[in-house]
Simulated assay, not measured.
Amino acid sequence: MIEEMESDIAGRCACGEIEYHVISKPLAMFNCHCGDCQKASGGTFVSVALFNEKDLIIHSGYPRYFRSYGETGRWTDRGFCQNCGTPLFAKGEIAPGLISIKPGMLICI
């Protein structure tokens, strides 16, 4: 499925305060079932589209990040809109230079 996606992908939070686009295809897409992601999502997993952080361009707004520590002791910064609370991004100690974006927020442009 990744091969079929366009290389310019955009997204925004629910209220529209934060708008962004990514200038590359995802490196991977998967569901994470770790305990920390279950707590963050309130469900059994979090869906992830993984990109190089340098390819993310934020056009408007400023996400707020919350740092949490998982079962392994490694940190993850989870980014969300300060206005509407929409979860948007995550980046962590385990994968420097990479950022995950919630795939449900993405559209091809």
Rank of each mutant, 00 (worst) to 15 (best):
G73P: 12
I23E: 15
L98T: 14
P26Y: 00
A95D: 12
E19P: 01
L106P: 08
Y65E: 06
K39H: 11
A40Q: 13
C84H: 01
E53M: 10
C13I: 03
D55T: 12
P26W: 09
R74M: 06
C34P: 11
C32Q: 02
C81I: 04
V46H: 13
H21L: 11
Y69V: 15
P63R: 03
G79W: 11
S41T: 11
A90L: 06
F80T: 06
I9F: 02
V22E: 00
R12V: 00
G43K: 07
V48I: 15
I101G: 08
C13D: 00
F89L: 07
V46F: 06
C15L: 03
I109N: 15
P103R: 05
G104W: 00
F51L: 07
S24V: 06
Q82L: 01
L106Q: 03
I57W: 01
G97E: 01
P103C: 12
T76G: 10
F66Y: 15
G73S: 10
G73Y: 03
C84Y: 07
C108E: 14
I2H: 06
E93N: 10
S68T: 13
G16W: 03
L88S: 08
S100T: 13
A10C: 13
N52S: 02
E3K: 06
V22K: 02
Y62G: 05
Q82S: 13
L88D: 05
G35E: 14
V46M: 13
